[in-house]
Amino acid sequence: MSTRIHRRRHAKNIAAQVLASAATLLALAFLVWILWETISRGLQAIGISLFTKITAYADQGGLANAIVGSAIIDAMAIALSAPIGVMAGAYLAEYARSTRLGATIRFLNDILLSAPSIVLGLFVYVIVVLPMTAVTNGTTTFSALAGSIALALIGLPVIVRTTDEMLQLVPSTLREAALSLGIPQWKLTVQVLMRAAGSGILTGVLLALARLSGETAPLLFTAFGNNYMAFGPLEKMASLPAAIYQYTNDPNPALHAIAWAGALLIALFVLALSLLARTVFARGKTSHD
């Protein structure tokens, strides 16, 4: 009798362990599958023309304008979100650590972190693209600036959260020591605390860049797209994710190949940034001790 119960519990335990291991293997299999397809299909279409020709040549062309456009839009987005995010994070950590306003902002920031990006795109469409169209009588409609504002909204909560957390980790003895020397609080925050938490804050900025550089949905109705080179922030601008979206929807298989090459570029960029963020964070940690 007791051996039967024991045997049944044992069998259940083995089954659970096997299933849990299988679940992990399945998730890893999907990871390998997705990465493998992206790498193998992407490599086939990577060549010089991918970086030198623009999308106007369609299947004879490349993604040069999309790469340049993505670089410009992403750079503007991070230039917008990094200072605002770091300052907002500093407010939460230094001035609102245990106030009700701080708790509310922290809470809503976490919601913004997983808010649907397509709605943020619509938001920027309504508050930037529509007014811009009205003011300029339709000469400026979709613009790289609008795209970068939409992406900045996606990067912002990442930076706010990491800055907040990293500043909270700085030992309070550092604050007390600096304040006892008579340093004003803004100087303490900027020159002492932010320096101490520097690598952590940089990690947050890198993660935000990794996150926003892969976003597609909000760009469709803000930066729109452009088959030619564009550099002005008020022009419609091509971007890698939007170009991939457009090419994937096209029935022409030659364009699919180019889209895979673009996907590989984005994947490499995002993974490299994630790794860089990890190493920056790890190095900051060791030098601190």
């Binding site: 997705i34 992206t38 299909r41 550089s213 976003e215 597609t216 699919h256 984005i266």
Partner: peptide, 19 residues
């Protein structure tokens, strides 16, 4: 490895899904 699944941009999920 599991966390990397979250780092893959959604457009790549879409392409992989379709093709």
């Amino acid at each position: 490895g599991i966390e990397l699944l979250a780092a893959i941009p959604s457009i790549i999920y879409g392409m992989w899904g379709l093709f």
